[in-house]
Design a protein around this nucleic acid. Structure first.
Length: 636
RNA sequence: CGGGACGUAGCGCAGCCUGGUAGCGCAUCUGCUUUGGGAGCAGAGGGCCGCCGGUUCGAAUCCGGCCGUCCCGACCA
């Protein structure tokens, strides 16, 4: 995929050659840009030079003809989700390689806005900004044990002296190393260090644009406390800061309990932006504030026993030719799927394990992994199933099975059920748990399902999908212990520091905002993270009055701290309107020939589509009011 | 890494089965007309048909290998 020339971009010679009818103000604007003033403008404006012309140090008005924002009408075929599609179409990003992107000027502006909010809220919460390297020596990772544990996602390489390094996918090791060297006394704690930095994870499957890239910006923070009580408080502060952050970005989000994955630690919450395209399924209670990732969501033990086939008699073998799935077997035998004892064989780092669950539920592999304390688990393949059970998959059962067997509590509720006979085309009925087989234990091993009550209050659980934009962990002493990060307490005794870590994906948050705020015409940015606050559109730039009015309004707004995109392209109005909508600029001012001649301009709200005609003399004030109103909607 | 598909102009695609002339729409450039929701007409430029090898008189097309990309399953901000 490659770049597409923006309409009316600098490369377009059209407007440049015939300058006849162009308005005086535009000509001046262009001359400034192309003359020697451009030098100052391009560099980061040396003090006193171009800066002197601007009031209040406001940013300069950005002109579309001098701005790389290549919008496209057609969608690249490899963009699956809206945020990816719209970011490409709006000219915010371009792909360089799988999961690796160029951030074009407007896209970068969005990221910078997100970052600014992150900095403000982290600072407010008492954290200090640092910057750690993206290239990290292997020694630190070996010390924590993750050099071997992290897997292929860690991109490793060697320098010229053959020393091993990796690109940091997260920075627990690096901060812990820093802290253990520099912090000696409890008086220095608590401390919270954060950075906003480029991360690299060699994802198995990058997809959805910035939603799951390999290279991405992340805000990561790390807290250090004496003891668990302090660590809890640090965690609480970050949790609150996160709520403020996502509120300020105008997002509909939910904090849910989560699995800790390979970061490790005792407890964690994920911050989920609610969106149907989200990669995670979450449950939340309609009655209380409990919420959880389905990976984590607990199930209460079954209340009443599920009667089976009234099995007074002993277990019997029945022929079930070709019936393998729960549906096939239950309908063939004419029994409730809930009384089938589903037997799944897993290969794990702790050896082969059979997992039993009622036929109406699914096994939650993460719960299995955590229950076993295993590093990994995966469903056994067909060959393995045959080797262990002696039958093709679909006919496994716990009776007479020689591998380690654990069961979900739903199996306990089956007084008498059916199960595979470990023999091709045969099942057993009237099987009684405890009599015909005995798993080593019963535990919560299944995925929550519709109808399960809230484990906290018994209320109704709702299922939705979310995009994980932030994650907070209480790490305990996992890293500080391994890396000897200790500190002297008030009694002069050495104590291992308690840690927490807190991440937010910058690009992912921007993508999530689009998933949640778009319509048929394009992005509808919350103003707090929009690339521009206002688009000023002179309908015909060759009309000097219109051009002049647009020019004056833009610099007026700019001087008052509003971020303006002046669409000075010689394009048809339709194109300008479409582009402004596509890019999602919250407020649009249209200056048409008739309106301007009559002393009016037009103000339009991107979100509601509401349009008002305002006298030119009041236009700037009206824009300011609308911008202020939109900003207020994004207040924490 | 497994399963499925794709790679032809900047973008979206056809052509391939059945070998012989590389095509369409959008975009770009020039001119004229047009100017409040992705304009019209006329003209022009633009391609190592992903790469390497094989079959053949001849390969975008058939065969093999490699590379890249996307979609479905185990990872995570």
């Amino acid at each position: 995929m490659r770049r597409q020339r923006p309409r009316g971009s600098p490369g377009s010679r059209r407007g440049r050659r015939r300058g006849e009818g162009r308005g005086a103000d535009f000509r001046e604007g262009r001359n400034r840009q192309e003359g020697e003033g451009e030098i100052h403008r391009r560099r980061s404006r040396p003090p006193g030079a171009a800066a002197g012309r601007r009031k209040k140090g406001a940013a300069q008005v950005i002109r579309y003809t001098r701005f790389l924002m290549p919008t496209t009408k057609e969608t690249p075929s490899d963009a699956e989700v809206v945020s990816h599609r719209l970011m490409l179409r709006a000219g915010l990003i371009r792909k360089v390689a799988s999961g690796i992107y160029n951030y074009l000027p407007a896209g970068l502006k969005v990221l910078r806005k997100v970052e600014r909010i992150l900095r403000e809220e982290m600072d407010r919460a008492g954290a200090q900004e640092v910057l750690m390297p993206s290239v990290v020596p292997s020694e630190l990772w070996k010390e924590s044990g993750r050099w071997d544990a992290y897997g292929k996602e860690l991109l490793r390489f060697k320098d010229r002296a053959d020393r091993e390094f990796c690109l940091g996918p997260t920075h627990e090791e690096v901060v812990t190393d820093l802290i253990r060297r520099e912090v000696r006394s409890y008086r220095q704690l608590p401390m919270n260090l954060y950075q906003i930095q480029d991360k690299f994870r060699d994802e198995i499957r990058p997809r959805f644009g910035l939603m799951r890239g390999r290279e991405f910006f992340m805000k990561d923070a790390y807290s250090f406390d004496m003891g668990e009580e302090g660590a809890k408080e640090s965690y609480r502060k970050m949790y609150e800061a996160y709520c403020r952050i996502f509120k300020r970005m105008g997002l509909d989000f939910r904090a849910v309990e989560a699995d800790t994955g390979n970061i490790g630690g005792s407890s964690s919450h994920e911050f989920m932006v609610i969106a149907d395209s989200g990669e995670d399924a979450i449950v939340s209670c309609a009655s209380c504030d409990h919420g959880a990732n389905v990976e984590k969501a607990e199930c209460l033990p079954p209340t009443a026993g599920t009667a089976g086939s009234n099995g007074a008699g002993p277990a019997r073998k029945v022929a079930t030719p070709g019936r393998r799935t729960i549906e096939e077997v239950s309908s063939f035998l004419g029994i409730d799927p809930g009384t089938l004892i589903k037997t799944l064989l897993f290969e794990t780092s702790a050896g082969d394990v059979a997992v039993l669950v009622s036929g109406k539920f699914e096994v939650n592999e993460i719960k299995v992994r955590n229950h076993l304390g295993a590093e990994w688990v995966r469903l056994a393949d067909e060959a393995r199933v045959r080797a262990v059970t002696g039958a093709p998959s679909g006919f496994a059962g716990p009776v007479g099975l020689s591998v380690r067997t654990i069961a979900d509590r739903s199996v306990q509720a089956i007084s008498s059920g059916a199960t595979g006979a470990n023999e091709k085309d045969a099942h057993l009925v009237d099987v009684v748990p405890g009599r015909d087989f005995s798993p080593e234990g019963y535990a919560d091993l299944r995925v929550v399902s519709a109808g399960d009550p809230c484990p906290r209050c018994g209320g109704e659980l709702r299922f939705s999908r979310g995009i994980e934009v932030g994650h907070v962990f209480r790490l305990g002493t996992k890293y500080s212990e391994a890396m000897r990060a200790v500190c002297l307490d008030a009694d002069g005794r050495e104590q291992v520091i308690a840690m927490g870590c807190y991440g937010i994906g910058v690009g992912r948050t921007a993508a999530a905002a689009i998933e949640q705020n778009h319509d048929g015409d394009g992005i509808v940015w919350p103003i707090s993270i929009a690339p521009f606050e206002v688009a000023v559109i002179p309908v015909n730039v060759k009309n000097a009055d219109v051009a002049g009015a647009a020019e004056r309004l833009s610099s007026d707004l700019d001087a008052r701290g509003v971020e303006v995109l002046l669409d000075d392209r010689e394009e048809r109005p339709g194109i300008k309107f479409k582009d402004a909508d596509l890019v999602g600029i919250p407020v649009r001012v249209t200056l048409g020939e008739k309106n301007v001649a009559a002393g009016f301009g037009e103000l339009r709200d991107r979100k509601s589509g509401e349009t008002v005609r305002v006298g030119l003399s009041d236009l700037a004030e009206s824009v300011l009011a609308m911008v202020a109103r939109k900003k207020a909607e994004c207040a924490a």
